[in-house]
Amino acid sequence: MNEVTKGKFSIGFLRRLVELLSEGKVRLEDFKKFEEGGFVKYEKEGLVGSPPRAILEAWIEAKKDSSGMLVAWTLLGFSSYIEAHENGAIEIYSQGMVDINFHISLAIQPLFDRELKEAEKIGDKKKYDELVQKWIEKTEEIIMGLSEGKDFEECIDMEDKRLRRTLSLLRMIALYIKYVREIAERISGKYGFEVKHYLKPHEDWDFFYSAFNSSGMSEDKLLEEIKKRADAVREAQRLGVPGISKRYLNDLRKKLESVKKLED
């Protein structure tokens, strides 16, 4: 049985992974291969629309070491994004859910609006730019807080009178965060490993995410682990909502309630 030495993978492994993730529908041979320097890229195009046009459906990018083994790779496709790092860490992301960064920025816009307008009115470009930076920093601070597990209400003072105009959006974001975390918790419980709701300050979207260390695992075990975790993040995403609005949140609440009933 092949064992994966810390962070090193064979092409055969990649071949099996593609077949596994696509449930046997796609083979690595279906991809176009490009090799340049220390890198190897595989790309698969699919057809969409009528008349059909080609779009990039899946791709793999891998770094090769001197022995021809893959030492780090990323795979995008089959509703997943997988990153294998040189230290053996494997990270699996769902597709993005909502443009959370933009939603939060819009929700806190009134904190900066008055000053932005004043700076614009008097033509103070420096001040204006500083305010825009502050606005971005505040958004990132909130996202950082959320990524550390804080509640949305802990990251922003919802009682701030300036935020009255966007209070309903703020409340919806708070609910959304609560719900997606609940989904992550339930999916973690179901699968027996951690699935997180993932946010990153500069990233626009939020994801479900799971990570593990592949060092010392057999290829079979590793393939099984990746598939299990890819299934888990995909299932979490299917339970989520890809939009922050009253209607989507109501749908999500109902879904969570029905899952709870089944569990009871």
Binding site: V48, L56, L76, Y81, W205
Partner: peptide
């Protein structure tokens, strides 16, 4: 130039 995803919600 090539588009890298078929849906805006992706990493990168």
């Amino acid at each position: 130039a090539r588009r890298l995803h078929n849906w805006a919600g992706n990493v990168g």
